[in-house]
Amino acid sequence: MFREQYTKFNQQVSPDKNLLQDTIDKAKKCEKQSNSKIYSFRKPLIILVSLCLCACLAMPVLAATVAPIYQLMYMVSPTIAQFFMPVQKSVEDNGIKVEVVSAYIHDNVAKIYITMQDLTSDRIDETTDLFDSYDINRPFDSSAHCAFVGYDKSTKTATFLITIEEQGGNTITEDKITFTVREFISHKTSSENVKIDLDLADYKTESEYQTQSPNGGGSSNENAALTEERKFLVPEPTIYPIMDNLNLSNIGFIDGKLHVQMQVTEKLTLDPHGYFYLMDENGNKVARDYNISYQTNRNGISITYDEFVFDVKKEDLQNYRLYGSFYVAGLNTKGNWQITFPLEQMN
């Protein structure tokens, strides 16, 4: 069969270890540089947006009649604002107005401010997240990302900064860009470093298990490769509710390791997620050895079971307490917001 022959052929094709390590090193370096770049850019922006909000409160009439971010940015700091070209193109759907406020090109980088305003209710807040539902279509080969930079409660407006970088390092030429958003999540809540009020000593026995093909997981332990069927706890009806759409659904030992199972619903709409860790008597955190997850479908509802596995001995279990940090959004708003606008070089 050709398929088998082609598979054997491909199994002889792999990246060198040196190439793989070099790529990982470069990626880490790039990640560090990129993070520090965003941090240094964001910090003055947060200050700037805060000042804008103060000015906005002082001049509500002005703020209501002009594009708030650009106008107020200019009032606060003309030296920064002068680099941005006003765009002020907007689209409205499902009671949400999306506006491209301003754009700025410098060499191979373009930065674009977008605002989202709820015209009818309070779906937009300071936790608004575009949830990777946005597309930035541009006519050149580039990488792009969109970051939340601020929220104005008085106008119910969230501001985002899109950064586009031309891949070849070439200067970005004037052209049109189309920005599209299909959904966003908001009203996120979190419970960080909360104690799970269960006595782990009650779960010392080996548990019944099932085998499933994992569809996700993570570990710092390279041996925990996700390439085969794995043992999972059998889910119980909720034994400890954590947050909306997050429940602790079982705890027990499998092959001498402690498994803590989290049931996750509405994963693709409200982004519920979190993690468990153990705390010993001296207040030291013990991270999971690895976590694996599988997905199932019950009565048309997709449920993910994420299992956190700890390398602790049964006889030591009374010395540990279970903790975790958890996050979930309260609202998912869908719509069709698409804006095409020109990207112009500053003269």
């Binding site: 793989l20 790529t23 990982i24 990626a27 880490k28 990640e31 093909s213 994992p214 569809n215 996700g216 997981g217 993570g218 570990s219 390279e222 996700l226 390439t227 997620h273 976590n291 997850s293 994420d306």
Partner: peptide
Amino acid sequence: HSLHLYDCTEKVIS
């Protein structure tokens, strides 16, 4: 099989 969505870059690349 695949990874967890919030895995580190090194794990994803590997």
